[in-house]
Design a protein around this nucleic acid. Structure first.
Lengths: 174, 174
DNA sequence: GCCGCTATACCGTCTGGTCGGTATAGTCGA
DNA sequence: TCGACTATACCGACCAGACGGTATAGCGGC
C-alpha cells in the first residue's frame, strides 16, 4: 500500500510530464493524488518543498539503479561511469518525465543543488582518468538529447553510441 | 543603436539569468528594458512570444559562432562537430544565461521545438560516423554540466576534455 | 492626418498559502 | 475502564496579491 505522501509525489511527476510544469499547481496535484489541498500541504509545506520531493525521489531511484549496475559489473575499472551511462539511456525511462525533472531542477536552485550533489557524488567513484569524465559527459548529453528529443535518436542508435562510449571506459586514458 | 526589441530580449535574458525564470514577469522585463509594458507587448504579443524571442535570439547567436568556427577550420572531416563542441564550452558564455535558456526551452514546447530544429540542422552537416554523434553528445553534456554546475569543472579541465573529444573527430570511426 | 511606437490605468483570473475544523488513535492518571 | 488530553493526518473554504493581458490615449516624424 502506498502512502499519501508517495502518491502525491507520483502525481506531481505525472502532471509535470503530461501537462508541463506550468500545469503543476497544488490543486491539480492534490486532485490527481486523491488528496485534499490541505492534506497535500500537510506533507509538503510549500510548492518548493514539493518540487524538492519530486527531485529527491527521482534521485533516490537513479541511485539505486546505479548501485545495482555497479554491483553486477565484474570489471572495477570505470564501472561507476559505465553504470551511470547505462542508467542515463535506460529505455524504460520516459523522456517526458525526465524533462519534467530537468525543468524542476532548472527552476529551483535547491533542486539544482540536490542534483549537483548526487551527480558529483556518483562521479567521485571514478579515478582521475579523462576518459571517464568524457563518458559521464556523453551520458549527460545523451540524457539531455532524449529529454529534449534531439538528433532523432532511436533505440538502435542509442545502443550504438552507448557501446562506443563504453569502450572508452575499458582502458581509459589519463 | 539598439532597437527597443533587442533591449527587451536582452533584459529578459538578464532577468532570467540573474533572478531565475519565475521572476521573468512582463512588468520586470519592461522596467529593465526601459520600456513600458504596452511597448513590450507591442513587440511581443504574449509572454510565450517573448520566451520564443529569447530562445531564437540565442540560437541565432550560436549559429553565427558555429558558422565562423566552421569557416576557420581547414579540415573538412568533422569540422561541424568540432565547431559545435567549441561553441558549447565557450568560456565567454555565462552559465546562468545558458541555464535560463534551457529553462525556457524546458518550459515551453515551442521553444523546445526551435531548439530541436536548430540543433538537428547543425548536426545534419555531419557524416554518418558514430564518433561525430558522440562528440555532439559530449558537447551537450559539457554544456549541461556548465549550466548546472556539475563536476566542479574549471577552465583547464574543460580544455582537457575538449581536446580529448576533438581527437574523436579527426579520424572518426563509423 | 496618419502611422509606428509608447505610456498608463485597469481588470479578471489564477494560485500559493492560511486557518479553523474534523476524525481517529494513542497515552496516562485515577 | 473511563475520561481528559494530545498527536497525527487530513479537509476545504477563503483570501491577498501577483500576473498576463486589454483598452485607450499620447506623441513625434513624414
Amino acid at each position: 500500500m502506498t502512502t499519501a505522501r508517495e502518491r502525491v509525489v507520483e502525481a506531481a511527476i505525472s502532471i509535470a510530464a503530461r501537462d508541463g510544469v506550468p500545469a503543476l499547481t497544488l490543486d491539480a496535484v492534490a486532485a490527481e493524488a486523491g488528496v485534499s489541498k490541505g492534506g497535500l500541504l500537510y506533507h509538503f509545506a510549500s510548492k518548493e518543498a514539493l518540487l524538492a520531493g519530486m527531485v529527491e525521489s527521482a534521485l533516490t531511484g537513479w541511485s539505486a539503479d546505479i548501485d545495482a549496475a555497479v554491483g553486477s559489473d565484474p570489471v572495477p575499472t570505470g564501472r561507476a561511469a559505465r553504470a551511470y551511462l547505462r542508467s542515463a539511456c535506460d529505455p524504460g525511462d520516459d523522456p517526458s518525465r525526465e524533462l519534467a525533472l530537468l525543468t524542476a531542477a532548472a527552476l529551483d536552485p535547491r533542486c539544482a543543488q540536490a542534483w549537483r550533489t548526487a551527480v558529483d557524488g556518483w562521479a567521485a567513484a571514478d579515478g582521475p582518468e579523462l576518459d571517464l569524465l568524457v563518458t559521464r559527459l556523453a551520458a549527460d548529453g545523451l540524457w539531455l538529447a532524449r529529454a529534449l528529443g534531439l538528433y532523432g535518436l532511436d533505440a538502435a542508435r542509442i545502443a550504438a553510441v552507448t557501446d562506443r562510449v563504453t569502450e572508452l571506459t575499458r582502458d581509459p586514458r589519463p
